[in-house]
């Protein structure tokens, strides 16, 4: 029993690491732009396909492909900011609807470019770290955990310790006051979009060899991300990370001891309960970012 609990916990930590990358990006975008990005799951998918195109098809080293995924999807984020969210700045529902349109475009492009079939990616490494007889973790998963930890720490440092980060948080709290201090709202929006989208892309790229990749994979990603940001409090980055851990543990344990569909239902029910009881989230205040 102990082995099973320990093994499931390791799996949950892995899940928490990439979920938090996705959720933190979504929260950052909402915090600065006030828009819920429905296409976030498809940005994750785009990151995975960068790895398919570079690493699986063209033999580019894996971590170069992951970096390319971060940058490419970050640029997609900039495109969304410029083409969709900037013109619709005064219309939050419009931004949301436009991101739904963007989601469909990305999905269709993936189908046209790669086909609907599942992509197979050769494993990066077959190594496994063994703690005990029945407790082990593949090194590929360790890569995801370590990278997520490093990137989230870097983001935290950037937001709390650099002038850009201050500017970003200032315009999240009060765009008008920030603009009066000479902070460019457009510039901070672009930075937030690049980081938010890039993180989603990197999460997709990192996990690409470990999951099944198809053009419609973004659906479950965005549902997970919604659950996490609602449970964590829509505006809170720390809340998003904590909620990712909570959700990953609940989901992994229910999957292991019962089944996957029930785990999905549990996650959604958790979110509905939080929405009903405490709409500001378990860890968040009502403020944005």
């Amino acid at each position: 029993m102990f082995e099973l609990l320990a093994q499931t916990s390791l799996n949950a930590i892995y899940a928490a690491s990439y979920i938090s990358l996705v959720a933190v990006g979504l929260v950052l975008i909402f915090g600065v732009m006030g828009v819920i990005n429905f296409a976030h799951g498809e940005l994750f998918m785009a990151g995975s396909y960068v790895v398919v195109a570079l690493y699986a098809d063209r033999m580019v080293p894996f971590f170069v492909a992951v970096a390319a995924g971060l940058i490419f999807v970050g640029l997609l984020g900039l495109l969304m900011e410029r083409a969709l969210f900037r013109p619709l700045r005064d219309n939050p529902l419009g931004g949301l609807v436009a991101s739904i349109g963007f989601l469909m475009v990305l999905q269709a492009l993936a189908v046209l470019g790669f086909g609907v079939r599942m992509e197979h990616i050769p494993p990066v490494t077959q190594d496994v770290i063994r703690f005990a007889d029945k407790i082990s973790i593949p090194v590929a998963r360790v890569y995801v955990i370590v990278t997520a930890f490093v990137m989230l720490s870097a983001l935290w440092y950037f937001l709390k310790r650099t002038r850009f980060g201050w500017a970003l948080r200032a315009s999240a709290q009060d765009p008008e006051a920030a603009a009066l201090q000479g902070i460019s709202v457009t510039q901070t929006a672009m930075i937030a979009m690049f980081i938010g989208a890039g993180f989603a892309g990197m999460a997709g790229a990192l996990t690409a060899p470990l999951i099944s990749i198809n053009p419609h994979m973004g659906h479950s990603v965005i549902i997970t991300a919604f659950i996490v940001i609602i449970v964590g409090g829509v505006g809170s980055l720390e809340g998003a990370v904590l909620a990712s851990v909570v959700y990953a543990f609940v989901h992994t344990f229910v999957t292991t001891f019962f089944d996957g569909v029930l785990a999905d239902i549990t996650g959604l029910a958790l979110m509905l309960i939080v929405l009903i009881v405490k709409p500001t989230g378990l860890f968040g205040s009502a403020d944005r970012a």
Binding site: A83, L84, P87, L88, G94, V97, A98, I100, G101, F102, L103, M104, V105, Q107, A108, L109, V111, L112
Partner: peptide, 14 residues
Amino acid sequence: RPLIYGLILILSIL
């Protein structure tokens, strides 16, 4: 079809 619907959605909201 999804591509065109997506573009129509974006263009009409803009």
